[in-house]
Design a protein around this nucleic acid. Structure first.
Length: 571
DNA sequence: GCCGTTTTCGGCCCGACTGTTTTCAGTCG
């Protein structure tokens, strides 16, 4: 929780310093620190208390002191003074595409423009073209920029981005001049939310590609169109950028457009130390092209093991690649079963038989039926009597279906005091128990942490489902001492669920990585309520990969017999 | 402001595009 707050303050400081025309490297230090803290998998307050802040990349003596001040007092004097020195909202001007720190400053100093409304009015009144270096075209661009932020979506969930990207790549693949095509950017890194969609194409005839792209039916508006780069807005308000390079540069360009930015910067620094240069066209010694067709070729020349896109966040992956210590990341095909499924018995849409057949098509060795427990009334939770009947029904199905084991399970509600919705004598009859919080989200961090860690002590509880409770773009995670929960997971042998459901993706990536460090295990499940939801498993795998997880870190990669043993181990 | 198998001071990724300019600054990724 605190991490986000600290990162936000540093980001604000960076932006204000930009407007003030400070040393660009000092600005970058703040912005880099912000990013570093945001993707940290430890609680910043704890690190501060342990005097370990300087271990965070990008944090030195000065910033460590500032973090301590924020953690201890809830505010930062330096920031407050800085904030008072510029009008409120001025940094917001920079959110308009085309307006950077220099323009923002100029607009304020000459025209007293201090927010986007002012900006729009002055542009409409043709007052901006009076400024030095500004003319009609700039005015038009400002108005377009404002219209764009009004229209364009904020970040969208990964699943939406992937579907949109696929629509575009499917259309573009039909052009015969397209040699290779690949979505890049944060989408390729499988970040949980994505701002815009970057697509890279290699072709010897870029113009042909651009013409087709900007005329696709999905396109509502063309934002920019050049010979090798174009941007459009879809009907849904999603920005899609297309870039075309020569086949010789496809790998170098893919590396560059995939990012993240800090990963690229560090990579280029490493290259510079070896006396070579990397840009989006390739790796060069003097002016001689040495590599660029494939990403791996470039990593190889820098003596780095190839790095999966999901790891490229400048979180130690380059250092690990140098030492050949990268994880062997989990693959979708490693998953042997789905452990969180709802049927018609509670709030799912399909019968048990339909679920089993669909799971068989997926090639799973086992699935768990985990309908809600009695307290979750809104989801038609099962009473002990109904659960008993369901267990019998599942036993019958196991006789009927060969080649797949159906586990009788339950998603048992963790009540507000940490007790479970079913007594042990009932849980005992189940093959697999998932426990989850479904109410009382407003409890204090202490209460919630205690509630969940207490549930984990129950020997029948195998998995904690969607541990943070967040819903992307809809509900913040509840207050939880995740470090304590993950330690409890290790101690009790309880698995942490990575919910592959698109709105959840919870446990989140950075906590997966921390869980692994602490020796805890995960389980990836879809929380399906419809048959089509079974397909979401790949999203959970993406989260796991971003969390550096390997096959051995995920319980449902085990083949049936070993998995059943693992389930019983806690009892 | 950070950081160090060249450095505790002097570096800090690299290029495209745009609009405004006659050679470049600002912005973006």
């Amino acid at each position: 929780m605190k991490n986000k707050a600290v990162a936000e303050i540093f980001r604000q400081i960076g932006e204000i310093l930009e407007i003030q025309g400070e040393n660009p490297f000092r600005i970058r230090a703040y912005l880099r620190a912000a990013q570093s803290i945001e993707s940290l998998n430890r609680d910043i307050a704890k690190l501060a208390a342990e005097e370990k802040l300087k271990e965070i990349p990008g944090i030195g003596k000065d910033l460590a002191e500032k973090i301590k001040e924020i953690v201890n007092t809830g505010k930062l004097k330096f920031y407050e003074q800085l904030r008072d020195s510029v009008p409120e909202g001025l940094t917001l001007l920079m959110s308009v595409p085309g307006i950077g720190p220099k323009s923002a400053k100029l607009l304020y100093e000459h025209l007293k423009i201090r927010n986007i409304n002012d900006l729009e009015q002055q542009a409409l009144a043709h007052q901006i073209r009076i400024l030095p270096g500004f003319k009609e075209k700039t005015e038009e661009n400002i108005l377009r920029g404002i219209a764009l932020i009004k229209k364009a979506k904020e970040r969208m969930p990964l699943a939406v981005a992937l579907a949109t990207a696929e629509e575009f790549t499917d259309s573009l693949k039909k052009i015969k001049q397209v040699e290779q095509i690949e979505p890049a950017g944060s989408l390729r890194r499988r970040k949980e939310t994505v701002r815009d969609i970057d697509i890279l194409v290699s072709s010897r005839q870029p113009k042909k590609i651009m013409d087709t792209f900007t005329k696709l039916v999905q396109v509502k508006e063309i934002l920019a169109q050049g010979p090798t780069k174009s941007s459009v807005l879809t009907k849904e308000g999603i920005q899609v950028d297309l870039r075309v390079v020569q086949p010789k540069s496809f790998g170098a360009a893919l590396l560059y457009f995939t990012g993240c930015k800090e990963h690229n910067i560090k990579l280029r620094q490493m290259a510079a130390k070896k006396g070579v240069k990397i840009n989006e066209y390739g790796l060069f010694k003097k002016n001689k092209w040495l590599a660029g067709k494939k990403e791996q070729d470039i990593y190889k020349l820098l003596k780095l093991n190839p790095i999966a896109p999901e790891l490229r966040e400048d979180q130690g992956e380059l250092e690990a690649a140098l030492k050949a210590q990268l994880p062997e990341l989990l693959e979708l095909t490693d998953i042997k079963g789905d452990l969180h499924l709802h049927s018609q018995w509670s709030d799912g849409a399909h019968s048990l038989g339909e679920l089993v057949r669909a799971a068989k098509v997926k090639g799973y060795q086992y699935i768990a039926i985990t309908d809600h427990s009695q307290s979750v009334r809104i989801a038609h939770g099962l009473s002990p009597e109904r659960l008993k009947r369901q267990i019998a029904a599942i036993a019958k199905l196991n006789k009927k279906f060969k080649g797949i084991k159906i586990l009788a399970g339950s998603e048992v509600d963790i009540k507000s005091d940490g007790s479970l919705d079913f007594p042990d004598r009932i849980l005992k009859q189940l093959d697999l128990v998932i426990a989850a919080v479904h109410s009382g989200f407003k409890q204090s961090q202490e209460q919630l942490t205690q509630r969940i860690t207490r549930a984990m002590e129950n020997k029948y509880v195998n998995i904690i489902a969607h541990p943070s409770g967040r819903l992307l773009g809809q509900r913040e995670p509840y207050a939880l001492d995740m470090e304590a929960v993950l330690k409890q997971a290790k101690k009790t042998g309880t698995w942490m669920e990575i919910s592959a459901f698109p709105d959840r993706l919870d446990l989140i990536d950075i906590n997966c990585r921390r869980a692994k460090e602490l020796g805890a295990q995960m389980a990836i499940s879809t929380d399906s309520h419809l048959l089509s939801h079974l397909d979401y498993m790949y999203l959970g795998v993406s989260v796991a990969r971003r969390g550096w997880l390997e096959k051995k870190d995920v319980a449902n990669t085990l083949p049936l017999e070993k998995f059943l043993q693992a389930v019983k181990k806690k009892r």
